[in-house]
Design a protein around this nucleic acid. Sequence first.
DNA 1: TATGAATGAGCATTCATTCAT
DNA 2: TATGAATGAATGCTCATTCAT
Lengths: 193, 193, 193, 193
Amino acid sequence: MRADAARNRALLLAAAEAAFAEHGLDVSVADIAQRAGIGKGTVFRHFPTKEDLLAEVMLDRVHALTGTGERLLTAEDPGAALLEFLTLAADRQQQHDLSVLRDAPAVNERLAGARIRMFGLIDALVDRAREAGAIRTDVTGTDVALLMCAPGHVAAFAPHGGPDLWRRYLAIIFDGLRPEGARPLPVRAPSLG
Amino acid sequence: MRADAARNRALLLAAAEAAFAEHGLDVSVADIAQRAGIGKGTVFRHFPTKEDLLAEVMLDRVHALTGTGERLLTAEDPGAALLEFLTLAADRQQQHDLSVLRDAPAVNERLAGARIRMFGLIDALVDRAREAGAIRTDVTGTDVALLMCAPGHVAAFAPHGGPDLWRRYLAIIFDGLRPEGARPLPVRAPSLG
Amino acid sequence: MRADAARNRALLLAAAEAAFAEHGLDVSVADIAQRAGIGKGTVFRHFPTKEDLLAEVMLDRVHALTGTGERLLTAEDPGAALLEFLTLAADRQQQHDLSVLRDAPAVNERLAGARIRMFGLIDALVDRAREAGAIRTDVTGTDVALLMCAPGHVAAFAPHGGPDLWRRYLAIIFDGLRPEGARPLPVRAPSLG
Amino acid sequence: MRADAARNRALLLAAAEAAFAEHGLDVSVADIAQRAGIGKGTVFRHFPTKEDLLAEVMLDRVHALTGTGERLLTAEDPGAALLEFLTLAADRQQQHDLSVLRDAPAVNERLAGARIRMFGLIDALVDRAREAGAIRTDVTGTDVALLMCAPGHVAAFAPHGGPDLWRRYLAIIFDGLRPEGARPLPVRAPSLG
DNA sequence: TATGAATGAGCATTCATTCAT
DNA sequence: TATGAATGAATGCTCATTCAT
């Protein structure tokens, strides 16, 4: 890839990430292009559809998170490792949520694969934490995968919240996973098929 | 208001609530009008903009929730009362989230007022629960108001989740509020000004 | 239909007919709308896609032609009747050709039906003419249906041709159908499946 | 011109001819370039606009046809020679029509020149045939030049027609030129100015 | 010189909103 | 008053053409 094309691609992805984060999926491609300082047509040269651009943005997030998270599999304290992973996740996700992942399989094979890999990682982290007695026994990896975005989402509701507010809600939610005094959860855990 | 106008208004609000719930904010006014069995122009006669229509739908939800919730202020068990309120909230909210409320002041004075009233109620319920030792001491009403939508939002992520899945995540989050073994929360609680 | 809507629809169809005739299928909907003196959105209110608009234009042509042509089925002189039909066809078609009809079935059920009816008419006219000895025996209705547009198309080639030039080429082509001195045609006649 | 440039030019023209024939004038330059196995920029190095590329393709066709046709000027049977020329023309033109020639003067001086030369040839062939009594007296070279594309065009209408169907319509049209029993043509013959 | 990256005008289509009936 | 016709700005996307590498 030519140097200038690579530069434009990077500018584009950065602009897209910021734009999706600020305005959600409804930002126009034209806006993203302008933010990136490139022409509209250039966006489509790099990504054939807007959806593909979004998928790439998500893919980058998911890859980075999974890569970092996999190192936590060998951490000494499984409970702390899980919390660390959720902290990383919420930090990255602070800007915009992962809800696109729900429809990942329909969007893009690579994104679907990245999702599977990340969910596998989460399952492993949760299993280790459960076996170590750090979290309640009736919580599954899928539960945690679903809860993962909640801190950022909750914090986004607060109009005057600082950029670290999500830490507060992650603490509450993670406390909800602790085993002491936990009563059995209602409703069966979902699968992520 | 003439009888038929009132009837149309009711049809319209019901249709809008259902439509927003099913398809999010992107439903077209034309779809809503068709669902309601009225003309598109009639929608704009009742509400000058689509946003105003949405505000009214939210207003109804908030009013109903607040009305029911206020009866819980005199319940015997303040902890159970708070849980009951959150259950009511998540149940109603199961269909579509309250994120519009974040921008309520900019949208509509009445909606802003309803929000203030609901947040006052939540503050009171939380205060009672805290004083009764049912929840951790460092949680505020604002925290709970922000967390209120999380169960529905988290459950909406699960592609194969049943309609009651939110109960599972409400249980986890509510357990995160219990006082036993809770460590102090990081980051200051936000204000909702 | 409201009076103003009907007026706009008529303006639109007239503008579309003229525009398609002058510039082929590549005229933009915006151009057609401007020609008609209506807004772009109005075009799509009347016809959901550009293709549907084109189909309607064609449908009008085909209906008018078939309606007029069916009266010729009872004319005294079958050869003259066929020539008269081809004259009508070329006259109408002078402006733009019927090639859309080739793909009619894929476009629109009504258009497909109109095509079938017109081809039935042509078959009947040709059969009568053949039985009367007015045209060569090895020419089919399908041949004539295909040849029908040729005079207009040929005349359109001449940059300085007058508006009646097609008559000259219709005369030549019709003379090619006469039985006297005709040698058997090569290649089997096609079907119009 | 360097050898590789000449090779690219040849590849490009062959690809363009095939592409225009298959998909009409709407093929994109990118498609043509890919077919030719060269870069898009190279196309524009050889031909400043897409129209110029098309003109060159046409020029080749016209040159080849004229070159072959000029040998027919000395054939023994002038009527058979004209038919042979029209057969050659339709065969070449089977793939895509010569309608671009109508606007040749505006497009390209060389193309305009080629057209003049070809029309001169046609005039000569027609004159010989007329003098030999092989065709009706009131048909001009211009008439034949205009009719030349009709067989291919008519055959292209038939969705299920074989690749030789044009022969059938050439036979009919050529029969329309025969002198026996011909009635005088209406409308003056056009000039091709 | 050849390449393909970049560009932006142009296209069909949607939709909130206005307005004539 | 209720309707739905009309409107045009905005959107995702294509493509001939230009230009940096």
